[in-house]
Design a protein around this nucleic acid. Structure first.
Lengths: 234, 234
DNA sequence: ATATGTGAAGGGGTTCACAGCA
DNA sequence: TGCTGTGAACCCCTTCACATAT
């Protein structure tokens, strides 16, 4: 990478073959996008793509794309472009998508049920293997062949069934409790749809998606479009 | 992310009284979070809060919170803190939440249906007033009192019913077409759940939420935790 | 000729540290 | 004393421009 600290401790031939140790967060965020675009290209029968084309398909600057890819250790061919298949494989490897992840969804209200049935997850290698809720009215319900279990069984299921990602789709009030359960059971990756900030120990990755927040951000822009002069320039 | 055609407009010393003209995108993203935390505080009967406390509740640095708020024209009381009620009102005003937004959801598969029924939207002032789909098997279906209409009726509904935000929850293949319909009908704010990049004219704000992307980012961290030594220090 | 890989420049965003006010 | 408001440093990210390779 760039900051290899000149002088001090220069590892002998350090740089692992296909290294991806500490990528910038911004880069990591874009990788899934690249991967998706590559999939589309692949389906179209394209087998080589330029940074310019791939960047356009993902809405980023081509120089940034190249920088991202070079950080992965991915190599294009000058004067030609990147191999679609190789690049896809490479990115999938960096993202750890070679082995399927095992996901539990906790909270099966409308949102949780939608997530449980969302085809996009299994399509991209995320196996939903556990559904949990605290509501007796929902426990036992069958969703596409998977039965909703009592959240009291969550911890054991995590261990017995190798669950490594927890998706929280409960109301906000229950979210922290569920997070604690997940963390105690050893889960270190959590996707939180509840509208609250979760406290978790170091080493646990939490990503938050708040649907209402997205609308509020749009509301801001909408509000200001109507307030300010409607772009007399450009 | 946001294709918010910000012009290069350089205004002369304008700064309105309680200005919020061109807030940094990063600040705007945090405002809904502040607002939510303030709501929680308000329910708890708290009426004054320090930047330190509010920052903790929203997971940000207190200096950044103060900087965000001062940019809004919000004023705290030195030695005391911020008025919970005033601050909430102020932020809501900046976000344009004083008047309810009118939302259409297009695509009522599992995800779209869940969004249609998600209580968090109406709770925060987003009225879902239109549901549209292209599938004859879904058109006519009733969801909590709202009937799914043919997407062919979308354009007229946008105009007649004052819809100003469109939520796209279709498969990726249909998303661009729907976006075109929305834009042609005059919608300038779009929330896109489809896994694809939308092309829209300048001045149209698009926010994208891709659930699988979030899982893939978690997968990256998960992958690297297992690869690298698990934090021998700190 | 064409497209990658990257140094250097530029812009934001975040944090620190402290001045200033109640 | 306590907490806000903010200049300044720092760091990360993005973009430009071009050397470099096929």
């Amino acid at each position: 990478m760039t900051t290899t600290g000149e002088g001090t401790g220069q590892r002998a031939a350090a740089v692992p073959p296909a290294a991806a140790a500490d990528l910038p967060a911004a880069t990591v965020r874009r990788l899934p996008e690249y991967l998706r675009a590559l999939g589309t290209l692949s389906e179209s029968g394209v087998d080589t793509v330029s940074s310019e084309t791939l960047a356009a398909a993902t809405g980023v600057n081509s120089a940034m794309l190249r920088k991202d890819l070079s950080q992965l250790g991915a190599s294009g061919m000058r004067g030609v472009g990147y191999s679609v298949a190789n690049l896809a494989t490479h990115i999938a490897g960096v993202l750890g998508l070679t082995k399927d992840s095992r996901v539990a969804i906790i909270g099966l209200g409308h949102l949780g049920q939608a997530l449980a049935r969302y085809p996009g997850f299994s399509e991209r290698g995320f196996d939903i293997v556990g559904l949990f809720d605290a509501d007796a009215g929902i426990i036992g319900k069958d969703l596409d062949g998977l039965q909703v279990r009592d959240v009291a069984l969550l911890a054991r299921a995590v261990r017995d069934e190798g669950i490594n990602i927890g998706v929280i789709a409960t109301p906000g009030a229950a979210a922290q409790h569920v997070a604690d359960l997940l963390v105690d059971a050893g889960v270190t990756s959590i996707l939180n749809f509840a509208p609250c900030v979760l406290a978790v120990p170091q080493g646990v990755a939490v990503r938050k998606v708040d649907l209402a927040v997205e609308l509020q951000i749009l509301s801001f822009h909408e509000h200001h479009k109507t307030l300010s002069r409607p772009e007399t320039d450009v």
